[in-house]
C-alpha cells in the first residue's frame, strides 16, 4: 500500500475562492509591511553594529544579576536573554548579552568587551564565553547595502530568466510570488521579533530559490498544457495544470519540511533563526506558487496565438527544450 498525499485524479478548483486566497495574500503582504513599519525588525549586530557575547555556565543564568552588574558600565542599550534549547545538557546554561555600538567608535572596542567579561566573571566565576562577535558601524552599514543588493539582484535575475524561458506575464507572476514570500517572511520576523541578521538574508535568498523552483515546475506544465489544449479557457488549463502537479508539489514540500523540522528541533540554537526563515519560506512559497503566481498570470492574460504579435518578446527562447 503506497502513501498517497493526494488521490490519483484530483479536480480541485483552485480559482473558486480566488478572491479569498488572492485577497488574503494581498492583505497578508500589507499586514507584514505595516508590522515591519510599526514594530520594526530585531536587527542583529550584523546590521546595527555592536557586540554579542554568548555566555555559558554550569550555574543557572541570573539575568537580573547580569543586568545589575553591567548597569554601572553605562554601555547604553544592553539586552540579556537566556537561551533554551533541547540539545543543551542539564547543567548547560546559556545566555546572550548584546551591547549596542558605542558612540563615536568607528571600530570595535576591545576594552569594552574585556570589561564586560570581567564584570560577568565577578557575578559568576564559572562563566565562559564560547563566542564573542563584534561588528563596527562602518561594516554593518556596508552589510545592509550588500544584503539589499543581493536580494534585488536575485529578483532581477529571476525576472530575466523566467522572461527568457517563458513569457513576460509568467515572469511578472513569478516575481510577484517572490515578493510575497520575502515580505511575509520579513513580517513574521517582525511579529515574533526574531533576530534578523546576515544569515536571515541568506535564508531569504534560499526561500527565493525554493519558491521559484516550485513556480517554475507549475509554469512548465502550464506551458505544455497551453499547447495541448488550445481551445480551453486559460483558467481551466491552469486548474488542470495545478491538479496534475499537485502530487509533486506536496511531495517535495513534504520531504523538505520533514528535513527542516529535524534541523529546527535538533540542529541547535545557533542556526534556529536561519532554519526557521527557510521553513516558513518553504510553506509560504508553496502557497504562493499555487495562489499568487498563477492569479497574476491569469489577470495579465497570456497570448495564446503565436501568429499574433505580442509584447511577449521572450518567446523566441521559450521552446528551447520543450
Amino acid at each position: 500500500m503506497r502513501l498517497r498525499l493526494v488521490p490519483q485524479e484530483t479536480n480541485f478548483d483552485f480559482f473558486r475562492f480566488r478572491k479569498v486566497t488572492f485577497g488574503g495574500s494581498v492583505i497578508a503582504v500589507i499586514a507584514s509591511i505595516v508590522l515591519w513599519l510599526v514594530m520594526g525588525l530585531n536587527f542583529g549586530i550584523d546590521f546595527l553594529g555592536g557586540t554579542t557575547i554568548r555566555t555559558e555556565s554550569r550555574v543557572e543564568v541570573n539575568v537580573g544579576a547580569y543586568r545589575d552588574a553591567l548597569q554601572p558600565l553605562n554601555l547604553g542599550d544592553v539586552s540579556i536573554t537566556e537561551v533554551f534549547d533541547p540539545t543543551f545538557a542539564d547543567d548547560q546554561n546559556v545566555a546572550m548579552v548584546r551591547i549596542q555600538a558605542q558612540d563615536g567608535a568607528e571600530s570595535v572596542t576591545p576594552e569594552v568587551i574585556a570589561l564586560v567579561e570581567d564584570v560577568l566573571r565577578t557575578v559568576d566565576p564559572e562563566i565562559t564565553f564560547p563566542s564573542v562577535e563584534s561588528v563596527g558601524p562602518k561594516v554593518s552599514g556596508e552589510l545592509v547595502t550588500t544584503a539589499l543588493i543581493a536580494l534585488a539582484a536575485a529578483m532581477a535575475a529571476m525576472l530575466f530568466y523566467i522572461w527568457l524561458r517563458f513569457e513576460w506575464q509568467f515572469a511578472v507572476g513569478a516575481v510577484a510570488a517572490l515578493v510575497h514570500d520575502v515580505v511575509l517572511t520579513i513580517g513574521i520576523f517582525s511579529l515574533l521579533q526574531i533576530r534578523f541578521d546576515l544569515a536571515t538574508i541568506a535564508a531569504l535568498l534560499t526561500v527565493l530559490g525554493y519558491s521559484i523552483n516550485d513556480t517554475v515546475v507549475l509554469f512548465d506544465r502550464l506551458r505544455e498544457n497551453l499547447i495541448k489544449y488550445k481551445k480551453t479557457p486559460l483558467m481551466e488549463v491552469m486548474n488542470r495544470s495545478t491538479n496534475e502537479t499537485l502530487s509533486r508539489t506536496l511531495m517535495t514540500s513534504g520531504t523538505t519540511i520533514v528535513a527542516l523540522l529535524a534541523l529546527i528541533i535538533l540542529g541547535g540554537d545557533v542556526i534556529r533563526g536561519f532554519v526557521f526563515a527557510i521553513l516558513w519560506g518553504v510553506i509560504v512559497g508553496t502557497y504562493s506558487s499555487v495562489y499568487v503566481a498563477k492569479n497574476v498570470v491569469l489577470m495579465l492574460g497570456v497570448n495564446r496565438d503565436p501568429k499574433k504579435p505580442d509584447s511577449g518578446a521572450g518567446t523566441q527562447f521559450g521552446n528551447i527544450d520543450a
Partner: peptide, 23 residues
Amino acid sequence: TFLEERTIGPELGQDSIDAGRIA
C-alpha cells in the same frame, strides 16, 4: 583598526557539528 571580530570557542563549534550530524 578593527572593523569586525568574531571568536567562536571550539566547544561551541563541536556542539554545532554534533547537532548538525544528528539533525
